[in-house]
Simulated assay, not measured.
Amino acid sequence: MTTNPALADAVNAEYTDLTAFKARLETHRRYSRIPDDPEGAVRDALLLPNGLDLIDIGCGTGDFLHALAGRHTGRLVGIDTSPAAAVATTRTDQVEAIEASATQLPFPNGAFGAACARHMLYHVPDPHLALTEAHRVLRPGGLFAATVNHPAVAPRTQDFVRAIVQDAGITPAPAPINTVTSDNLPAMVEDVFGNARTVRFDNTLAIPGPEPLAAYACAMLSFAGVSPTHPDAEQIRDEVRTRAERWFRDNPGKTWDDPKGYALVAAERGTAAGS
């Protein structure tokens, strides 16, 4: 199973710089109708902090590992394919960060007692191989946790953005299709680890005003094919702000509601040889 090429290209462009990524994270943190803490869910699944050596596969901003530093007594390692944006922001005296692929982890068998893959498996060319690599670097009894989105996250805002891009005379990039979702990840983890425990988190974005809606929508523009350096990017951002203001003016007292959610899938590497 592989991700579609259009999504892979969008991801590569998006994570060269983490500005838009951080804006989306902030939107979900502030405006989820039900308090949303996917990092806390992963910590609970891995019993963190503890004394296990931990690898965070696809460490992103490094915030997950930084929050553990000083409390976690085991080794903290982050890997990511983005050297300038992710790895550079992750590495500290207490946190190791390495530029590497999830499908070829540069560690020996059984190097870690815990591993996580947070909201990243749908960005990997071969998710099954990434899970196999996570299993390989775990020692017997090691703990694994992964989070992935539901098949559709914030579809209303995605449609909002794509309509504005199209009205600007630009053919939007193909809508991203995640090939790893809360629907199929449990079976994938079960296939690799021989066990899987799944918890679903269903939620809604409830954005209260035009400024946060415009910020979130602008942070999605790359996925519609409009990068920050696109010659029409600023004009399109202005139109996003205009339409966001119009919607709230026409719908007084309402929030911009958009469905979202994710699943956490946890597993344990078996203690038998080869399991």
Rank of each mutant, 00 (worst) to 15 (best):
T27M: 14
D183E: 15
A84D: 05
N4G: 05
L105N: 10
T61N: 13
P212T: 11
F21H: 15
V42K: 00
A263H: 04
V189L: 04
H230P: 09
T132V: 11
E190N: 14
A173F: 12
T271K: 13
L131Q: 06
L131S: 07
F160R: 03
D257A: 12
E14D: 15
S227F: 06
G142C: 10
T198E: 11
A102D: 08
R246C: 03
N4V: 15
R33M: 03
R156W: 13
P108D: 14
F248Q: 04
E190V: 03
A152M: 14
A114G: 15
A217C: 08
N195P: 02
D53L: 05
L52I: 00
A23I: 11
A266H: 09
A145S: 13
L47K: 10
T204L: 13
C59G: 11
T16K: 11
I98F: 03
H28N: 15
A67R: 15
F64I: 07
G253Y: 08
P231K: 12
V240L: 13
P49S: 10
G253I: 07
A88S: 15
D17K: 10
A88Y: 01
E99F: 00
V87E: 00
G113L: 07
V265K: 04
F248P: 04
T90P: 07
L205G: 01
V77P: 02
A115I: 04
D250L: 14
A145K: 12
V226T: 02
F107C: 05
V226M: 02
R243N: 05
L221Q: 09
D250R: 12
A145R: 03
K254M: 12
